[in-house]
Design a binder for these strands. Structure first.
Length: 105
DNA sequence: AAGTTGACTTAAA
DNA sequence: ATTTAAGCCAACT
């Protein structure tokens, strides 16, 4: 099945995204890495953009590596705050407390 | 087909 | 804090 591997990539992201508990966030890079592509962080972002805030998935729980919210989606911060996520004075998520990681062996 | 863009990341100035 | 630079790669023009 060659095609581009974007389909399974999106599927993996969807599953992971749906598994994120409230009050936690993940980065695009991690999302891509768990999906099988450690360097497709941008693709993860593009996929989330495709889902949009209207999607049943908690796409607002995805932030960049610095805990920053999406550049074109202001409401995200409000949504995260409603989930119980705390923000630093810089406007970045307190990764130290809310950076969620699957399979915490 | 070739160039530009971007919900990325890290590092450096 | 902001910008630049370079690496990365699919989507867009």
């Amino acid at each position: 099945m060659r095609h581009t591997d974007t389909a399974p990539f999106i599927a993996a992201i969807t599953e992971i995204l749906a598994s994120i508990p409230p009050g936690y966030v993940v980065t695009y890079g991690d999302l891509a890495a768990w999906a099988g592509h450690p360097s497709h962080a941008r693709l993860a972002g593009h996929v989330l953009a495709g889902f949009g805030p209207a999607s049943p998935l908690p796409c607002h729980r995805v932030v960049n590596a610095k805990g920053r919210t999406a550049p074109h989606w202001h409401a995200q911060r409000t949504l995260l705050t409603a989930e119980g996520v705390t923000f630093r004075p810089d406007g970045c998520v307190d990764m130290n407390r809310h950076h969620w990681i699957p399979l915490p062996c």
